[in-house]
Amino acid sequence: MTGTVDLRGRAAFRLSNYDTPFRARPNTYSGRWHTQEDGPTQYLCLEPTGAWTEAARAEGLRTEDELALLRTRIWVVWLDTTGLADYSTFDAADRAGFPPDALVDEDHARCQVEGARLRSLGYSGVVAPSAACSGGTNVTLFGARYLAAWGTPARLSSAIQGAIVARGAPEQGITSHVRHLGEQHAGLAAYRNRQPPDAPPAADALL
């Protein structure tokens, strides 16, 4: 059974160079928790660093000089969301019966199938470890949203308050947090190291 996370009154961050951080139409590309048939899906990070690391990973930016060439917008949004599937740690996913390694696998297929299942069960999204930033946490919201001005009480369920908090390039030091495509995920490796070694096969299995 997948537990839920309550993110009422939490800030989250997202990179978007449009005039809004949110999607109202189906995403143009498939992503970790959705395919193009699944409808709009919003990807956010709980830490400000997360949005920069997502950009670095997606664009293959490996040096501070390359990151300094960004001229992007980072938005902060104020979440008022409940009913998010709790895969916030590798342990939580394991307890719910979802393979922990799938959360940060370069192949999104298992997460996409799980995303469809969670949608069908009425979950509002997923909280899971960031694949781009070891130690970071991402929030994925299912469905369309639109931007409400910061400070405006959001009476409508799809409205989320948000504002731009950074324009340009990140401060120095982001590169050490980025997990680039094809690299090992340090958080998953640490989780695996904490697991007890596989039990030796039973004697009769050797016969």
Binding site: Y18, T28, W33, E54, A55, A131
Partner: peptide
């Protein structure tokens, strides 16, 4: 064109 557009917003990686 799609590659240029893709970098304009964060995707689920």
């Amino acid at each position: 064109v799609e590659a240029a557009r893709r970098g304009r917003a964060q995707h689920g990686s």
